[in-house]
Each structure stands twice: as C-alpha cells, then as structure tokens.
Simulated assay, not measured.
Amino acid sequence: MNQALQIRSALASEQLPAPGQAWLQTLVAQQPAQQRTMPALVAAAKARLLASDLATPGLFDTASPPPVFPRELLGPSSASLQETRLTHDVVAQVVDLENLSQSRWQQVQALEAIERGEQKRGREIIRVPAGGYGGGGDGDDDDDETDAGTANGRPAARTASTGTSDASATHRLVLQDAEGQTLFALELARIYRIGIGRLRMGEKLLLKTGTVVARGTLLLEPASVKFLGGQVEPLHKTWVEGRLARLRSEAMAAGPRV
C-alpha cells in the first residue's frame, strides 16, 4: 500500500473524508524528508484537511467524491418534505451561525467581545488570545457536554460562552457539503459545543446516518452530530466582519438598546 492510500485509510478511520490522490501526493512531497513517517504524514494531512474549504476544486477525486447532502433535500421542493432522515453520513462545514435566543444587540456585543480577544462566562470577562475563538480543535468534543472547567484538555477560557442563558439557547447553522450545497440546521436539543465563541467558520461536522431532516432543515441532537474540528480562516474572518456589520445595521434600524 502506498503512502497516499495509507493516509486515506487513517483519515477514514477517524470518519474524515478521504482527500484525492494528487492532493495527498503533493502534501507528502512538501514535507521534509525527516517528517515523512506515517504518523507525521497522517497528522499533517489531517491538519491541512481540517483547514481546507471542503468545496475547494481538486481536494477530492472526482471518481470517488465524499458523500454529500441528498438531492431531494436541496431546492424549493424540500420545504414540502415533512420529515425524512439522512441515509448516510455526511461531513459538512459550518458557514454561518446565529443564536436565535439573543437579541441583535446581544449578538453584536458577543462578536465585539471576540474581536477584542475576550469572552464572557457569567459575570467574569476572560481574556483569550487575539483573534481567539473557542472550538476549532482537531477532534470530537462530545465530552464538552460536561461543562467542566476544561474541554478536551483546552482551558475553559477558550470555550466559554459569550451569551446569556447559554444552557437554553437555540442556534441555527448553515452547513455546506463538499459540492458547495448548503442546508440550514437547527438545534433540536441543546448541544454545548455549538455557540458563538465555540464554533469557527469552516469547522467540520459529521452528520450521522439517521439525522432527522424536516422541511429542508437538519434537526441536530447530541447523538446525531460529531465535531471533527478545524477552521477555514478566510471564511471565519469574512463571516465575523460581515455578520458584525449586518447585525449593527439591523440593531440600529430596530431602535435603541433595551
């Protein structure tokens, strides 16, 4: 088995989509000779994949693309489909996120705190690295539901919520598959890992077989989604700047702060 096939097999064992042969061969060639051990190559491929836009041309082989959203869930007709379920696993990336439980002004304050490099937990302001944003890890965060002082070994300061009443918040996401197709997703039950200050744009999620889809919207529960980590920095930067500008405009149009 050549190196590219071994790397693909290792990534698949972690439920990550397998990049194309050409992409992997280029990655191997770019690594210093002393770092071409299989563990090092797998780690490099995983990090590069999680930082890549899934819709990037050439990332996957056209002959064996990763599973994507079913066609019947896309387009205007999907709204008439009362309820169905995913028949296969789909890896998608986050391209938009909104806390539906917060007012526009609260969302502005949350994003401004992130821009300043600080987040809020309760009444305590926690400093994080400039540009820091919780999440963006490179592994599953199922254990985050414990809401303990750390999350998968990361300091709580990096995953602290910026909003109020986080335990009862409801978030709406826009998820994009490897073909660039998007679907709305809504928390059916609270998932601690989802939140402004935790997810970054471009972070990869595994939507598991059996995930409920109602009226063209994925309904997310803790058991139906696995967080694979990663981020796409250009997507995230554009999202923060654009969303903050839109929220400020909408908040001003709605009137003074309450």
Rank of each mutant, 00 (worst) to 15 (best):
Q30N: 15
K237P: 00
Q25I: 08
D61G: 15
E118F: 13
D147G: 11
R257C: 07
G136E: 00
L111T: 03
A189V: 04
Q15V: 07
N152G: 09
I114A: 12
P17M: 09
H236P: 07
I191S: 10
A12N: 06
G75Q: 02
L186N: 07
E115A: 12
S249D: 13
T170K: 13
A79G: 10
L27K: 11
R200D: 04
Q106M: 11
G122T: 04
R116V: 06
P19H: 14
G195D: 00
Q21R: 15
A178C: 02
L188W: 01
Q93M: 12
D142N: 13
R116L: 11
D141H: 11
G132R: 05
L235E: 09
L206V: 04
R198G: 06
G242N: 00
T84Y: 00
V240M: 14
A51T: 11
K120C: 05
G202V: 02
I126K: 15
S80I: 02
L186E: 10
Q30P: 05
G58M: 08
L41N: 09
T164D: 10
A223I: 05
F184T: 07
K237E: 07
L5R: 13
L86V: 04
S103C: 08
G134L: 01
H171I: 05
A214P: 06
E98Y: 02
G135P: 00
G20L: 03
T162M: 13
G131T: 05
I196R: 02
A10L: 10
A245G: 02
E179A: 15
Q119E: 06
E98D: 12
Q35L: 14
R190G: 05
S224M: 11
S9E: 08
Q21H: 13
E203C: 02
R248D: 03
E241L: 08
Q21Y: 04
G135K: 09
L228G: 02
A113M: 14
A43C: 08
R172C: 01
V225Q: 00
Q109L: 12
L199P: 03
K120F: 12
L59F: 07
G229S: 04
L111C: 09
G75W: 12
E112I: 01
A29M: 00
T62Y: 02
G122C: 08
L24F: 03
N99E: 05
E98W: 04
G136T: 05
D138R: 13
M38H: 09
A151W: 01
E241T: 10
